[in-house]
Design a binder for these strands. Structure first.
Lengths: 135, 135
DNA sequence: CTGGATCCCGTAGGATACTG
DNA sequence: CAGTATCCTACGGGATCCAG
């Protein structure tokens, strides 16, 4: 890591977000806004995993998307990629310190999601129902 | 609102997320994973806003995408849409109770984003740099 | 086992013009 | 003012085959 990669621990609880409607926030939220990043983060929460383990853990992900997602997260400093020069190849992925803080920051949203799945299903059904009767 | 839209307050801090790698979590995360929802939520945090106010507040959003985003959030029960039958038309958007809880659940992620923008920029620069020198 | 290279498709989303 | 209606493009992402 070079100089600016991390200028010491940041107490981000003190940062004022009242005047940050979108710009930077969205930009970085895209980190986890794609289809698979959250699943990868969630799977790596328990510790390092190798490629095939991730592939098996994350239902429905294609090899290509796992590769792409892992490379993006590595590029952003969220996880590390360690290659063991053995046969057959063994590559291990592990969250960085920053990756773990990101993982923790996603917890409230994930909890919210799980807690409100039914309410959202209901709201959607009601909305679609009213839209139909109005027709 | 009918019965199941909200089955009472849920203490989602008590929900176990250890074994929820992706499925439902991602599904609901898509609520805010699109390009503009977070900006709308953030803008409505301060109180009700009308269409044009939102349009002006959110830099770069098109009329179409504002309309689409608002309708989706309304459908999911995140905000309400109130039409005042006057000339010229006046339509007001406001977060629901559930919308406010969602808004709060996004705070940690937004704070994280703002706090780590520089670190991520650095990590990307370093990654791209090494990829180039390796070439 | 861990990917890279291609091909292909659906859809998010921008630009523009029109309407009650 | 608050949208709808089209058109069009870029890109996310799946399937498949190949390679070290």
């Amino acid at each position: 890591m070079t100089e600016q990669a991390s200028s010491g621990p940041v107490d981000y609880r003190t940062i004022d977000i009242s005047n940050v409607p979108d710009c930077r926030a969205r930009e970085v939220l895209d980190l986890v806004a794609d289809k698979w990043s959250l699943s990868v983060l969630s799977t790596l929460e328990a510790g390092p995993r190798r490629f095939t383990e991730l592939k098996r853990s994350i239902t429905g992900i294609s090899q290509r998307m796992l590769t792409v997602t892992l490379r993006d997260l590595q590029r952003d400093g969220i996880l590390t990629r360690t290659v063991y020069a053995v046969m057959p190849p063994n590559v291990s992925y592990e969250l960085t310190a920053m990756g773990r803080t990101l993982q923790e920051a996603t917890h409230p949203l994930i909890r919210w999601s799980i807690a409100h799945v039914d309410a959202i299903d209901g709201a959607r059904a009601e909305f679609d129902n009213q839209a139909e009767t109005a027709r």
